[in-house]
Design a protein around this nucleic acid. Structure first.
Lengths: 196, 196, 196, 196
DNA sequence: AATGAATGAGGATTCATTCAT
DNA sequence: TATGAATGAATCCTCATTCAT
């Protein structure tokens, strides 16, 4: 009973993910999402208030799941460089191993949804959750230990992770081929960008 | 007569640029573009085959104009590092000084248009125009002179310029403040990322 | 068991009454009626064939209950004028003391339901029930005793009671304030309208 | 050019009038209105902001046209009783000669539109237009000349005109047959209701 | 008997594109 | 050539009704 309910919800989210990742928001009308999920159109509205809510939920669940994967085995006791390599490596791997999720999140990020999302985040002073805590922790430690360059936080993020998003984007469309060795070298280049 | 015709075309492109940059593709129906351009709806279809053509044209013209600005005074005789700094610095400056164009190109890049655009580019072997020639030249020189790290071209591009797009994006929404000194330090970090 | 069953039916009717009176037919979907009645949606269809049947039943029950209240203590032996005052006064009082019922019946009367209802009534020659018997009795007596004006029955009804519905409608929305004295004066005016 | 434009607008209003009068608001979806008006669905939205605006406009135009017809030849110099007969007689005649308009206005009046409309009117102190001026003038004169009964304005309106609406409603569905003689007798009964 | 998830036809609205003037 | 009214397919969403549990 409970199982089936959850299944249907998941099917809708999955269908939306696949359609939006592949065809963009324009290519994912509710009727098509419902069809792909083997569900009646109306059922979407039992599980989500409206299409926007469905998309925002999907985004949040992906972000949450991704952060869990990325930060597994993360050890705050390890030296800064090692911690950075741990996070950056997993981040890049996550993106190339989850191309649907990555493409969806990119679509989301640059759509009106993402703009609202970022604005909300920007104005939410204290809403720093654990995930960002880890990333911000890297910055704080690096600065206080005089290991990384003297930039403000947002610039640090761009230097550290902006590269990875570009690499992943190219990978997803087949512009590059990455194996563990190349990934490590790329993360090394990111480290070069931020370290003093 | 010729003048007026050109004016009308420009007005349409400008209106589309402003509306899409500010409100996204959803916020720029043809009727609104025509109104903002002080032009009849039907006139759009005299200058452009359809809305897609208008948007693709706008993108191409912006890309072309940007590259012209970025590569002005470019001296192929200068040392590699100096040439990289020249290009990277101007690229970042262009983006933060042309927020409408930057935001439009970002919207474009992550929309179905951009996906098609990138796919086309990927399959067009010989379609390397002069602008990319300069960027590719940096790569070829750096590799042959053993100055930059051993990555394939697309990875090099991400390392070298991916950071800049992220920085610019944050700047456009007000997440960071950049002056000439910070810009130079950022470009320096990009250099650290690519250099051996 | 029988009790509970009756309770559930009453709860559904009550919920429908309140929602429709307050928000109109548009503001009373079955799901909302069920929720307000603390009943499953499906249960509505156990007690009523469909939504239309529910609404028609509700109307009929209200009409029946109202007539009972209005005609209580009605004495056919009293003089005509006194009988008219008795009925008209109670009718007006009922409407202002039962605003939910009154508003529902009005909604009903002017909706497609009411149109069908009136059509059916018009074509049902013999379907004169006891309640209307009383009203029709007033007309017949008045005419044979030469006390009331020479109009056909339906005009008599409009003259006698049409005023009261308008007064009640205004009262329900707060356009007027009525006490027993004003009510009596109003009924007196109705009497003036019909009497010779 | 101008002619055709006006024609289309009129056709839409006319189609809405006929459908709503006959089948109620539920029986008049935009697609059906458009079809009946021989117009594309989208055209409705060129002439009216949305369906609500269309309906409100239709109501206002009918009310305005009706008041013009009713008050034609109205002579403020005539005695009160004569003025009342003039207005009441024309009002009843208008309603029975314009059954579509009458039925539409009734539907409107008892729908959510009408409720909002009445509320707005109630709270608009100074928004007394010329039409109501005439009706209110009857009341003011009658009261100051001690000709009509001592009721507040809204009760006066119900006594004077409430009857007429009921009569007209019955007439529209064929419950009664009215000729000029009966109409005059009915207006006389209304006069009896209000006069001292 | 009761439940409420599932269904999908139906409704309002938008907007790229056409074409008569 | 310029205009903008007209078009109608496409989209999101609602809600009466059914039916498996």
């Amino acid at each position: 009973m409970e199982k089936k309910k959850r299944d249907k919800r998941e099917a809708i989210l999955r269908a939306a993910l696949e359609l939006i990742a592949e065809h963009g928001f324009h290519g994912a009308p509710t009727a098509m999402i419902a069809a792909k999920a083997n569900v009646a159109i109306g059922s979407i509205y039992r599980y989500f208030e409206n299409k926007d809510a469905l998309i925002i939920t999907l985004h949040n669940e992906i972000e949450c799941a991704a952060m869990k994967i990325i930060t597994v085995d993360y050890d705050r006791g390890k030296p800064l460089k090692e911690r950075f390599f741990h996070v950056a490596r997993r981040m890049l791997k996550y993106m190339i191993e989850h191309p649907l999720e990555f493409r969806f999140v990119e679509q989301f990020f640059y759509s009106p949804y993402g703009i609202a999302f970022r604005r909300d985040k920007f104005f939410a002073d204290t809403a720093i959750d654990n995930d960002e805590d880890i990333l911000k922790g890297l910055y704080d430690d690096g600065r206080s230990q005089q290991i990384i360059k003297d930039f403000e936080l947002s610039v640090f993020f761009s230097l550290a992770f902006g590269i990875l998003f570009n690499i992943a984007r190219d990978n997803v469309v087949g512009f590059n081929k990455l194996d563990d060795i190349v990934i490590d070298k790329i993360v090394g280049a990111c480290w070069d960008a931020i370290k003093l």
